[in-house]
Amino acid sequence: MDYVEELKKDFRYIEGLNACINCGVCTAICPAAEVSEYDPRQIVDTVQHADNDEIEMLLKGDTIWYCGECLSCKTRCPRGNTPCYIIQSLRSLSIETGLFIESIQGRKQLALKRTIGEHMLKYGYCVYIDEIDTEMFPEQGPVWEWLRDNREQILTRLGASYRQEKSGALRKIPEESMKALQSIFDVTGATERFKKIEELSEKKAREMKISFNSGKDDYFRHLYEGHND
């Protein structure tokens, strides 16, 4: 596959790459570069060289998944490039080509699909109190535990509409809006992407001999907890 031709179909690649002068300002400002093996300058340079083999290495590798998408690089680039947009186009291509399962970080897309991805279609929002416990999110701390354990009483006191069919925080989203979300996901490729992530992850899990089913199964735990990092 000609990866450069594929990237050129993504407006984020077009918008993100003008002419990189390799000054490294993006790497200097990047929060990810400081804490992981990630160098946006190098990634932009690789993509700018348009070497198909090198781009394939990016699509199969961990580095494109280390970006935090804070977009600090967009503000600072003196040439108007946006390394993060290039990352977004590489991540999409990694999933579309199925190469995401070749890297530890890429494989973790399954854990994201099974949490925030599924939450959107279950609750209408990416996050919902019922799904956030201190086993998965220990940093939530004792106050969250108290709030969650007493949520009916406390959320009522605070005026939220928890699980109720009326406006307000944490309400039950009307059926009409939930159907609209699902339908938009079906029409615009999100449903298909979810399916692809599941199917290719199942194949990889089988290869790695880790039990694969749905929800928080062994393969999910393996990715979420980082047993192989």
């Binding site: 209408g124 990416c126 999100a190 992530i197």
Partner: peptide, 14 residues
């Protein structure tokens, strides 16, 4: 509803 921003920036939806 959600705008899907968190999912988009996590790379799971187009």
């Amino acid at each position: 509803t959600t705008c899907t921003g968190i999912a988009y920036h996590s790379g799971i939806i187009p």
